[in-house]
């Protein structure tokens, strides 16, 4: 029997791992996009856990839509990424700092 606590703690770890990835990754833009996907995965799992324990389908419906949005988001993110690579020939995060101050 899976318990609510343990499930939520697992997703919390997953969520914090993706946050760490976002903060510590300083070189590859594409990994940042993957971290975003990971974050959404954690959130989705959260919803499914609650949906399961509440016996309520609404959580699953929410996940269904988050998946759709995440796919759309990935498409746009990758498009911007490609533009950046085309223009600057690099996707190094630490070189993207002309805007500051």
């Amino acid at each position: 029997m899976i318990t609510l606590n343990s499930a939520l703690i697992v997703t919390a770890i997953l969520f914090s791992l993706s946050l760490i990835g976002l903060v510590l990754n300083r070189h590859n833009l594409i990994v940042l996009l993957m971290c975003v996907e990971l974050m959404l995965l954690a959130v989705n799992t959260n919803f499914i856990i609650f949906s399961h324990f509440l016996n309520d389908l609404a959580g699953q419906v929410f996940v269904f839509f988050i998946l759709a949005v995440a796919a759309a988001e990935a498409a746009i993110g990758l498009a911007i990424l490609i533009l950046i690579f085309r223009k600057q020939k690099t996707i190094n995060v630490s070189e993207l700092n002309t805007l500051k101050g």
């Binding site: 976002l22 995060v93 993207l96 500051k100």
Partner: peptide
């Protein structure tokens, strides 16, 4: 304060987190 705005995405994300 202006110097805090470094221009790096990871610093911005860090601030948020």
């Amino acid at each position: 304060l202006k110097r805090l705005q470094t221009g790096y995405i990871y610093n911005y994300a860090l601030a948020m987190i």
